[in-house]
Design a protein around this nucleic acid. Sequence first.
DNA 1: CAACCATCCTGCGAGC
DNA 2: TGCTCGCAGGATGGTT
Length: 298
Amino acid sequence: MPELPEVETIVRGLDKVLSGKKISAVKILNKKSFLGERSEILGKKIIAVRRRAKYIIFELERGKYLLIHLKMTGQLIWQSQKIPNNKVVGGHPDEMYRRQDKLPHKYTRVYFEFDDGSRLFFNDLRVFGWIKIVDQGELKTLLSDLGFEPLPYTKNDRKSGELLILGVSNLNSIIQKYPRRRIKDLLQDQKLIAGIGNIYSSEILFCAGVLPGRAAGSLTAREIRKIYQSINRVLSKAVKLGGTSMSDYRKVDGSKGGYLDEAGVYAREGEKCRKCAGKIKRKKIGQRSAYFCPHCQV
DNA sequence: CAACCATCCTGCGAGC
DNA sequence: TGCTCGCAGGATGGTT
Ligand SMILES: [Zn+2]
């Protein structure tokens, strides 16, 4: 669920509040959601929180890491002990979660307690997500197959350096290498470009004016440039809005809503296109719904 | 090689 | 009311 903008948002928030805190307890409410021996992280400090693709990485003391994937419905909420309104929320904005009041609730699978009494809750309705204890070697292995990071200057894994950032020439090479694959599928392939999922692939292609089912090899140089620009525009706008995750909590905070309020096509089947008078269509591409405007996209 | 399928889970809304 | 079906922001491993 959460894609790059949502993961980036939660990572920025958590890095601020968790850096320097010591893990004093780990409560595992669902065994499938936590992989590893919990004693390996008890008493350890969190040095930093960052991400690579849609993976969240907690760097701990003495070469240990917590690797987290939110998958479809994962959500992280940090809450201070003294001021419950002082919180950081990110991940899935599912309605189910909004109906729950106190934490932990029925979808909380794991939570952490820190030395200052604050807590971090991992909620995950569908139990696809997980938290895994790894060392540096395992971390590297698990992340080794990931492709380019689409956005520059975000908080991805700095140690891997600038080589990770997607440039227009990289996009060209990818398209040349897989000319028969559909462009939406390429954009979502984590081994090629890391962090784009089902919302933003549709949004990017709407922005670029390209139909999601187009074979990569049929794209003109101009269209490829437009797609490249759209990747940057759509994702950076979503990051600015805090992803799609936090609208509910943002309303509580009196601030603005998330990206989905402004989505051009995603989950808007049958609704009016924002650029023309036509209606948004939905079509299965690679077993997932692709949304597009048949008039604005060619 | 690309497209399709099932799988891991839980819940919602539409239609009968 | 109760049932089935399709759907949901991910990723993997298998088969045509
Ligand atoms: Zn249109």
